[in-house]
Amino acid sequence: MPDVLNFHFEVDGDDFKSAGHASFICKKNLRQLGISPEIIRRVSIAMYEGEINMVIHARGGSADVNVYEDCIEIILADKGPGIKNIKQAMQEGYSTATDNIRSLGFGAGMGLPNMKRYTDYMDIKSTVGEGTTITMKVNFE
């Protein structure tokens, strides 16, 4: 058995319509591995929120999903504007999304809080002007 199985996705920031596509494909793959529906649901939500964030705020980026024996790791990396105040960004309802994005039903300020809620581990590394890398883990047990 390979120690780790990697799914790599490039998230296109120019095409808003395609946002959510990577998490869709990822979900399909995880289902084929026989991972439980509840774990898949948590990974899908966390990854979907992250993917949307990258499209809205950072003009895209990359998503890597690593399946280990005991957990699934999601790494979302972008070269966007970075997050000035991570603590503030983690607050429910806080959002810097434009009105345009809000009118589409996004930008409710629940993205990062949901990512934290549905995962067992979450780490945000961000430098203003350089980009953001978020690592999340969902444990099987």
Binding site: M1, L5, N29, Q32, G34, V67
Partner: peptide, 14 residues
């Protein structure tokens, strides 16, 4: 849609 009953085997197949 599961590839194999064993997770290890599924990962190898994937």
């Amino acid at each position: 849609s599961r590839l194999s009953a064993s997770m290890a085997e599924s990962m190898r197949m994937m």
